[in-house]
């Protein structure tokens, strides 16, 4: 009997949490846009976007290089090393670009957002804003949500582009695949609306989910050191799982059913 009660209680608590998350989102985003908030968003774009740029670019480069290396060793058995271009670019544009960017973003920017907002709560900065008649949802939460949602698709595009260049570096410059066929077969296969745009859509969905989880976990954290460390861990774990799960759903919707 006890475990049924436990199950019921934890289900109610989860639903309660989802409700609070929606309240936070609506409180933050349903507002008249102001010029001041654009400036705050740009500032946050620097924090979540520019500061994640290096890790994204380095990861993109290496993943593109590894893909070319692995792909080449398999494709060369079938004399199909010309298909290296589409293999690298399609994997990056459809899957690895959005997914790996989202995972790295959750680890780099998401955890930082959770910790920052959690600490602002623990040190009463959020309460203090409220008492100064400044809504922390609009002043603190909203610019961070917008910045996260804008930054991640940008990072994913940069990731894919650098990965394709990295694939070129290994496949063409090192392993000797013909440069012309690397690009031309890629061009014959990759389609703008099907591959690039779908990748961007995935990335926007991931961006919303990861940023939302990260900020809500910080905003809802228990304001103690354990609470914030727990919230930071949960941000990384929950958003990674959400990204991978959603990726399957989105892939099935976009590419699975013709």
């Amino acid at each position: 009997m006890n475990w049924v009660i436990g199950l019921g209680a934890s289900t109610l608590a989860k639903i309660n949490g989802v409700g609070r998350a929606f309240l936070m989102l609506s409180g933050a985003l349903i507002a008249v846009p102001q010029l001041k908030n654009v400036r705050l968003t740009i500032q946050q774009l620097y924090v979540v976007g520019v500061q994640s740029l290096l890790i994204i670019m380095v990861s993109g480069l290496f993943i593109g290089m590894v893909m070319a290396l692995q792909g080449y060793t398999i494709l060369v058995n079938y004399g199909a090393e010309g298909s290296l271009g589409p293999m690298v670019s399609l994997s990056l544009l459809r899957e690895l670009g959005p997914v790996v960017t989202a995972l790295l973003f959750a680890g780099r920017a998401g955890s930082a957002l959770t910790a920052e907002i959690g600490l602002m709560k623990a040190t009463e900065q959020l309460s203090s804003l409220e008492m100064m008649a400044v809504d922390p949802l609009r002043r603190v939460v909203a610019p961070r949500i917008w910045a996260g949602v804008i930054a991640m698709p940008m990072l994913a595009l940069i990731f894919s582009a650098i990965g394709i260049l990295g694939g070129h570096l290994v496949g063409v410059d090192w392993l000797g695949v013909d440069s012309g066929s690397y690009w031309s077969i890629m061009q014959a296969t990759v389609e703008w609306d099907k591959d690039v745009v779908n990748g961007i859509i995935k990335s926007i969905v991931f961006a919303i989910v990861v940023t939302w989880i990260a900020i809500f976990k910080g905003y809802d954290a228990i304001p103690t050191s354990e609470g914030i460390s727990l919230a930071t861990t949960q941000t990384v774990v929950f958003s990674s799982l959400a990204v991978l799960g959603l990726d399957f759903v989105l892939t099935a919707l976009m590419f699975g059913i013709n």
Partner: peptide, 30 residues
């Protein structure tokens, strides 16, 4: 709330701004 204010136990200064900007914050906002 603009005509009340509260001094929190921890001070609750905004840690990413100078003391000057902290004091100027409410004036700039309101």
């Amino acid at each position: 709330r603009k005509s009340m204010s509260m001094l929190f136990q921890s001070g609750a200064l905004f840690t990413d701004m100078t003391v000057y900007d902290n004091v100027a914050f409410a004036l700039r906002e309101h």
